[in-house]
């Protein structure tokens, strides 16, 4: 008995070590095309779809929190894609695509395609056109399409006056930071996963700081009819109490056009990013 217990514990510990050290692609696993999975899982394809999106979440959460390995973004995208093709109503997959693929990997176009596919099925869901609208406005600067999708969101959710009124102004006046902040504040309360919620909160904090500086820059321009040379000038002019701290660990500065930038580029500075960033 003792021999078997020792054998079991010893191999289990060893096996866990080996499996933990596997490359990212092996940890997420390989998923065959959706039609193959559908044929093999009979009427369990919805649950399988949800398992795949949860697998992506666990994979993302574990690796990002541990910061030990670089997530394989392309593989994550393929898994989310498969998940949505298995169950086009799976909102977890769309939420994950929006929360992770756009900000973390720059796969905005792919995320939009997934969300548009979802909206073709979840025709009642105002979140999807809202996300698509944001992606077009903020990442792709396509305000026409952004406006179109926001109008659809407003149609489905008329009680949110924000969509119908302020959004149009944000889009056309180019106030994308304020838009991003408003968007993130919609996303955070709905985020039930801690890893994703933390990410969104940090990003919102960063955008609050950027907005604070942008407002000081605008006031400086109005007062002195010129761009400030650096952020120190804003502090000396009494428009900022001090230079805000970038929650990502970077340093805020003004570029040649007077736009607020950060050395972190809004990603944690101590972390290396994935090879599929595009």
């Amino acid at each position: 008995m003792l021999v078997f217990v020792v054998l079991l514990v010893g191999t289990h510990v060893g096996l866990t070590g080996i499996r933990d050290a596997r490359p990212p692609e092996a940890r997420l696993g390989f998923y065959p095309p959706a039609p193959v999975i559908k044929a093999l899982t009979a009427d369990h394809y919805q649950f399988t779809s949800q398992l795949i999106s949860l697998q992506c979440l666990f994979y993302f959460g574990t690796l990002v929190e541990l910061r030990s390995q670089v997530p394989d973004w392309w593989r994550i995208y393929r898994a989310v894609y498969t998940s949505t093709r298995l169950d086009p109503y799976n909102m977890d997959a769309y939420y994950f695509a929006q929360a992770v693929l756009t900000w973390e990997t720059g796969m905005t176009q792919q995320a939009i395609e997934l969300l548009e596919y979802g909206f073709a099925h979840r025709t009642w869901d105002w979140y999807l056109p809202f996300y698509i609208s944001f992606d077009y406005a903020f990442f792709l600067k396509d305000y026409e399409k952004a406006g179109m999708y926001l109008a659809k969101a407003a149609e489905l959710k008329p009680e949110v006056a924000w969509y119908a009124t302020l959004a149009a102004r944000y889009f056309y006046e180019g106030g994308s930071t304020a838009l991003a902040l408003a968007y993130l504040k919609e996303m955070i309360p709905a985020a039930r996963n801690e890893a994703i919620r933390k990410r969104l909160v940090t990003r919102a904090e960063a955008f609050e700081k950027v907005l604070q500086i942008e407002q000081a820059v605008a006031e400086y321009k109005e007062r002195y009819q010129t761009n400030p040379e650096d952020l120190g000038r804003l502090v000396r002019a009494g428009l900022l109490e001090r230079i805000p701290h970038d929650p990502y660990g970077g340093r805020f500065y003004l570029d040649e056009q007077g736009r607020v930038r950060t050395t972190s580029k809004l990603v944690p500075v101590e972390k290396t990013h994935g090879s599929h960033k595009n």
């Binding site: 949860l54 979440l57 799976n90 977890d92 939420y95 994950f96 039930r192």
Partner: peptide, 12 residues
Amino acid sequence: FSMRQVLALATS
């Protein structure tokens, strides 16, 4: 475990 559809995951 669901991010946005607790009841849907439970039903599924």
